[in-house]
């Protein structure tokens, strides 16, 4: 298990982390997008920022690349300050932005070539490298097509292939699979998992708890620019939720009345508009107690706790609204 964030009083110098933030802050006028967050990412680690839209995740990513200047705090990437050494910092990074910004009108292959040139890479290196990257992204037979002929999943894979052209040690992925269908997401996760196995450090923002569970060794849960919790997915679930969750539905009109009857059942409850979540070590036992109290749910489901439950517990809100 990697380190936990050291105390605020420690010197803001580079420690073992490839990315270290202390009190990192970004304000726009009165609005605080990132509110003094601390984190440290170890080499080879896959580190996640889990939170809803507007939590400050993308802003943090932009500050790491020196594309946005920070308002306050310390930030260190590979021993460099992104505000002062933007080009040098970005030379270490591969960046997959939230929205694809491929050149739709030139060929798939040319998109990779042009991007490689921004790093000063030579043709002799780029030509074979591009073949490898296309193979990795499973786009070899699309090499000569224009980007606008690709599906959403293919474009995303091309964007990831593009971010790897300079062999980056750190890959920043901003909402890598948002907007993709389930199959395309699984292919993408597989590719990212292979990169992680190879030793690339991944920084991932996501508002999907399944993505965070799939990709991240460790993550911070962020909301309104603040860190709500930090740990591995399993630690977070252990610390902030129960082993199992019982979901019961009584129909929207009957929910509130049923909630009265169910008081005290399980360790904790969340009463949502369409269902009631009962957090318990043993979901089946909890369901038996619901029936014993004379209630008959329209539908019921026992499942393992997820990061979604962690977020709900920490903020009282759902991740995806």
């Amino acid at each position: 298990m990697p380190h936990i964030t050291p105390s605020l009083t420690s010197a803001p110098t580079r420690t073992g982390g490839v990315v270290t933030a202390r009190g990192l802050t970004k304000r726009y006028g009165d609005f605080t997008a990132v509110d003094g967050i601390d984190f440290e990412v170890a080499p080879g680690e896959s580190f996640g920022f889990l939170g809803p839209n507007g939590a400050g995740k993308s802003t943090t990513m932009s500050m790491i690349g020196g594309v946005l200047t920070r308002t306050g705090g310390e930030l260190n990437v590979m021993g460099l300050d992104p505000d002062r050494e933007g080009p040098r910092v970005r030379a270490h990074l591969g960046v997959v932005p939230q929205q694809d910004n491929l050149d739709e009108e030139i060929k798939v292959r040319d998109n990779l070539y042009v991007y490689g040139r921004y790093f000063g890479l030579k043709r002799a290196y780029l030509k074979p490298k591009i073949d490898e990257l296309l193979d990795f992204a499973q786009l070899t037979d699309k090499a000569g097509e224009r980007v606008d002929a690709l599906s959403g999943g293919m474009k995303r894979r091309l964007t990831i292939a593009r971010s790897l052209v300079n062999d980056p040690q750190i890959l920043l992925l901003d909402e890598p699979t948002t907007g993709l269908d389930p199959q395309a997401r699984h292919i993408l996760w597989d590719r990212l998992f292979r990169l992680k196995e190879q030793g690339t450090t991944l920084l991932v923002t996501t508002h999907f708890m399944d993505e965070a569970e799939q990709l991240c060794d460790r993550l911070i849960v962020v909301d309104h620019g603040r860190i709500m919790a930090e740990g591995s997915p399993s630690e977070l679930i252990r610390d902030y939720s129960t082993r199992e969750v019982l979901e019961v539905r009584f129909g929207s009109d009957a929910n509130a009345a049923a909630a009265q009857t169910l008081k005290g059942l399980g360790e904790r409850q969340e009463i949502l508009a369409d269902r009631i979540l009962i957090y318990a070590g043993d979901g089946e036992a909890a369901l038996a107690q619901v029936l014993a109290r004379g209630l008959t749910p329209v539908a019921s489901l026992v499942r393992r706790s997820s990061l979604e439950d962690v977020f709900l517990h920490l903020t009282g809100r759902s991740l995806v609204d």
Partner: peptide, 18 residues
């Protein structure tokens, strides 16, 4: 996608890129 990891190709160092 195996070739990426068997590759002998490597980009020049980040300092050179910069």
């Amino acid at each position: 996608g195996a070739t990426l990891f068997d590759s002998t190709l490597s980009a020049h160092a980040p300092e050179v890129s910069a």
